[in-house]
Amino acid sequence: MHTLTRSSIILSRNYNIFTARHVFFAGDLQDSLPGFLKTAQSYAHTQQYHHWQTLKPFFNKRIYYNLITTTEMLKYCDTLVYYWTKNKREANFQLKNILSLLPIGSDIFIVGENRSGVRGAKKMMQNYLNLKKIDSRCRCSLYQGTLQLNPSFNENSFWNQYQIGSIILKSFPGVFGFSGLDAGSQLLISTFKNNMHGKVLDIGCGTGVISAFLLSISPQVDLTLTDIHAAAIASSKATLLANCFPGKVYSSNLYSNVYDRFHMIISNPPFHSGLKTNLDIAYKLIQDAPKFLYRNGELRIVANSFLPYPKILDDTFGNHQIIVNNQSFKVYRSIKI
């Protein structure tokens, strides 16, 4: 995360704008520029635990990781720099949260890659500020405006709820599975049997859908759910609560906060970082899994059929099996010998 994203490159070209400002950075903070861009004082908020880990050495106590931005976080700030997220609903949630708290007259900067939909920021925020493009480079755009009206913000109005069979799913914007059950997770769920038991770790839990289905047929399973996304943590907790299911839910960058061993690790691992394909997360999930499994413990993951996971599974475990597959996805199982 030391290589600058295109969004940070365009911000660094305009560094002189920020030198006398008290800047609040938020949104998709994928690199360390917010930590070393020269300002009068910098603060940051992220919903992504791994971004918090990267930026914490630069900010100390002036960076916050949680779902919601609060008045206390913003009380010294006169400028917002928002890195546009690839999810429009998530951007709307985060921007309305922050703009509802900043004083009228605050300067607002929004930056993002054009293909991420950043052009839509002008229309989305038109009732609160008049954004104008002030720079464009590397297929990125930087917009500036002055806050004219505080939007109303109620986090509860952003919940999405839907039901699959008897299971209630709850989700905030930006969480994988927000609108419904994806085909990969559905295939993974189809491999679960009644009366499974033992300790199970669900990595990248999202809405909590995979764990909820497992608990619905095997209520004796001892489940732990982790994710890097604060909105996913809140969503999984709400899903378990709505179904009266037990389970421990907490933030972790893969295994960074995991201190236990399990009989099974389950996951539908991401293969994108922002807008780019990136297999590093899935590879690390696989390579480190044996440290967190009991002997004869199992890693079970679902992946797009074209992804090259068999070799890394064999290199790590010495074995792999395809439990089920279709035209698009495969469910792999590897056993710690």
Rank of each mutant, 00 (worst) to 15 (best):
Gln148Lys: 13
Asn195Val: 12
Pro57Leu: 05
Ile17Asp: 08
Lys88Asp: 02
Ser273Phe: 05
Lys248His: 06
Thr54Gly: 11
Ala230Gln: 11
Trp159Asp: 09
Val81Gln: 07
Met264Leu: 11
Cys244Leu: 13
Asn296Asp: 04
Ser305Cys: 11
Gly177His: 05
Phe292Ala: 10
Asp314Arg: 14
Asp107His: 05
Gly145Trp: 00
Pro173His: 03
Asp260Tyr: 02
Met125Trp: 01
Asp182His: 06
Thr70Trp: 05
Met1Gln: 04
Phe271Leu: 10
Pro103Met: 07
Asp28Thr: 10
Thr5His: 09
Lys86Ser: 10
His45Gln: 13
Ile312Lys: 06
Lys193Arg: 14
Ser136Phe: 01
Arg21Phe: 00
Lys56Phe: 04
His229Trp: 02
Gly206Tyr: 02
Leu223Asp: 03
Leu215Gly: 07
Gly174Pro: 08
Asn92Gly: 03
Gly297Ile: 10
Arg13Cys: 07
Ile108Gly: 05
Arg13Met: 10
Leu293Cys: 01
Ile265Leu: 11
Tyr309Thr: 04
Ile210Asp: 04
Leu37Ser: 09
Ile322Trp: 02
Leu147Trp: 02
Lys75Trp: 01
Leu293Asp: 00
Val324Lys: 13
Leu101Gln: 04
Phe271Thr: 09
Ile301His: 07
Pro308Thr: 11
Asp28Ser: 13
Tyr15Lys: 15
Phe59Trp: 01
Gln144Tyr: 14
Glu155Met: 01
Asp78Ser: 10
Ile168Asn: 14
Met1Asn: 11
Leu279Glu: 03
Lys311Leu: 12
Gln126Gly: 08
Leu102Ser: 01
Gln220Val: 10
Leu299Met: 06
Pro103Asn: 10
